[in-house]
Simulated assay, not measured.
Amino acid sequence: MTDPQQHSTDQASTPTSRPVPNMMPRSVGAAAPAADSVGDMDPSSVTTGVGEILEQVDEIRRASGDTFDLAALGRQAELLERAHEVLTTALEDVDPR
C-alpha cells in the first residue's frame, strides 16, 4: 500500500493535460456525414440547421417556465449536443486537422 499523503502529493506535482476540441469524442450514436457529402455542406444550411435546433431548445425552456423539469432539461441537453455535433462536423469538413 502507498501512503495517502504521498499519493496526493504525486498528483499535485504531475501536470494534467486537457483535451482539445479535435480530441473530444463524438456523441454516442451520432451519425457521421457520408464520405460523398463532405465538402458539399453549405454554410447557410449549417446556420439554418443549428438555428432550428436552438429554437427547439428555446421552446422547451419557455414551455417549462420557472419550474425545474428534469425531462425538459435532458431534452435540451440532447438538442444542444446535436447542435454541437452539427457545428463540429461542419468545422471538420472545412479543416480536418
Rank of each mutant, 00 (worst) to 15 (best):
M1G: 00
M1Y: 06
T2Y: 06
T2W: 06
T2L: 02
T2S: 04
D3R: 12
D3Q: 03
D3S: 04
Q6C: 03
Q6L: 04
H7P: 00
H7G: 02
H7Y: 04
S8F: 06
S8R: 12
S8C: 01
T9N: 04
Q11A: 03
Q11L: 11
Q11M: 11
A12N: 11
A12H: 06
S13K: 05
S13A: 07
P15A: 10
P15D: 10
T16P: 07
S17W: 03
S17R: 15
R18N: 01
R18T: 01
P19I: 05
V20D: 08
N22C: 05
V28L: 06
V28H: 03
A31E: 14
A32D: 03
A32M: 08
P33M: 07
P33L: 04
A35Q: 13
D36P: 06
S37V: 10
V38L: 13
D42M: 15
S45G: 02
S45L: 12
S45R: 15
V46P: 01
T48M: 12
T48W: 06
T48I: 04
G49R: 12
V50M: 12
V50L: 02
E52P: 00
I53V: 13
L54P: 11
Q56W: 01
Q56E: 05
V57P: 00
D58P: 07
D58G: 09
E59I: 05
R61M: 07
A63K: 09
A63S: 07
S64R: 12
S64T: 10
G65P: 02
G65Q: 02
D66H: 01
D66N: 03
T67P: 00
F68T: 07
F68Q: 14
D69R: 07
D69L: 08
D69E: 15
D69T: 08
D69W: 13
L70C: 05
A71I: 09
G74A: 14
R75E: 09
R75K: 14
Q76R: 09
E78F: 10
E78C: 11
E78Y: 00
L79Y: 10
L80T: 13
E81Y: 00
R82L: 14
R82T: 14
A83W: 01
H84I: 01
E85D: 11
L87T: 01
L87V: 13
L87S: 00
T88C: 08
T89P: 04
A90L: 08
A90Q: 12
A90K: 08
A90H: 10
L91R: 15
L91Q: 13
L91F: 15
E92Q: 14
D93G: 03
V94G: 03
V94F: 14
V94H: 13
D95K: 06
